[in-house]
């Protein structure tokens, strides 16, 4: 399935980027003036990459994700997805979206929820049913097809949301803190699950998170951001082998990378608030 040694650097070298962000600024009008949510952002994301955006609350990582998905527009700069403006990419249904909350429709069964994008995109009959079933098998929920969302646990609901996002085979998966509401145990299980899905579908994933271990475990690259104004402060290549599993979490290199990300986060926070103790910055890095 994977060559095991495929480092992030190799994948990044080939082809045009799937996502290209050039000189993006985003300013929000708020009651008492303007907030610089994002400033001078330049990012390229390559095909098949798993990129995490990490940073404290208010660093604009979710905004950056929403810019890629054309759910909000940049104040300045250009966002290109698959060589097209973000808006065109959205209209072409190039990406699937997963939010922190599953946002399932409670009047549809699990299967009905996975079928939703297919219904909207005009996929009908057997083809639609086949794809919905396939996606439910992918997230291992085929036994719950006829259940309603409220009968499922939080983790299961989020797996339905992932199946729904993948049902129409989008080229990119945008995930906004998808496991943020789950407990630690479930979150780690979901991380492994997501990697398995990523390796099988070869979808490009952009993943927003508060959690350093999660970002390191999942990603081929971690983009570290700081707040006020939202900027990219560091980009860390995660050169851990694949497939990754529970043993990965115990490797020396894994701990080194977690420390590297933590120090990148701390560097900015220390610079802005000198009084902050290391413990506090660590907490902010993890929980935000």
């Amino acid at each position: 399935m994977t060559d095991g040694g495929g480092s992030a650097g190799e994948t990044r070298a080939v082809g045009d980027p799937v996502v290209s962000i050039r000189g993006v600024h985003k300013v929000f009008q708020v009651a008492d003036g303007r907030t610089r949510a994002l400033e001078s952002i330049d990012v390229d994301i390559q095909r098949g990459e798993f990129v995490s955006l990490i940073g404290p609350s208010g660093c604009g990582k979710s905004t950056l994700l929403r810019l890629i998905g054309d759910l909000t527009a940049p104040t300045a700069g250009i966002v290109t997805v698959n060589g097209k403006p973000a808006r065109k990419a959205r209209l072409d249904r190039d990406y699937g979206m997963v939010f922190q909350a599953p946002v399932l429709f409670d009047w549809r069964t699990v299967e009905g929820n996975v079928r939703l994008p297919l219904d909207i995109m005009g996929v009908r009959g057997r083809e639609r049913d086949r794809r919905a079933r396939e996606m439910l098998e992918l997230v291992e929920l085929h036994d719950f097809a006829r259940h309603y969302p409220r009968q499922l646990s939080g983790g299961m609901q989020q797996r339905v949301a992932i199946a729904r996002a993948l049902a129409f085979e989008p080229k990119i998966l945008l995930m906004d803190e998808p496991f943020g509401a789950l407990d630690e145990m479930t979150r780690e299980r979901m991380n492994s699950e997501l990697l398995r899905i990523w390796e099988r579908t070869k979808t490009t994933i952009v993943f927003v998170t508060h959690s350093i271990p999660e970002a390191v475990f999942l990603s081929s690259r971690v983009i570290v951001m700081s707040a006020r104004p939202g900027r990219i402060t560091n980009v860390i290549d995660v050169d851990l082998g694949r497939p990754r599993n529970e043993e990965t979490r115990e490797q020396e290199r894994y701990f080194q990378l977690v420390t590297a990300v933590r120090e990148s986060l701390r560097g900015r926070v220390d610079g802005e608030t000198p009084v902050a103790s290391p413990d506090r910055t660590m907490a902010e890095g993890t929980i935000g």
Binding site: Y95, M97, I120
Partner: peptide, 22 residues
């Protein structure tokens, strides 16, 4: 939920589809 409307937007769903499906 506003996020449900964003989800529909991410599917490039028409107003008609948003009305009937959501």
């Amino acid at each position: 939920d506003p996020r449900a409307l964003e989800l529909m937007r991410s599917y490039a769903a028409s107003r008609w589809a948003v009305f009937w499906k959501l």
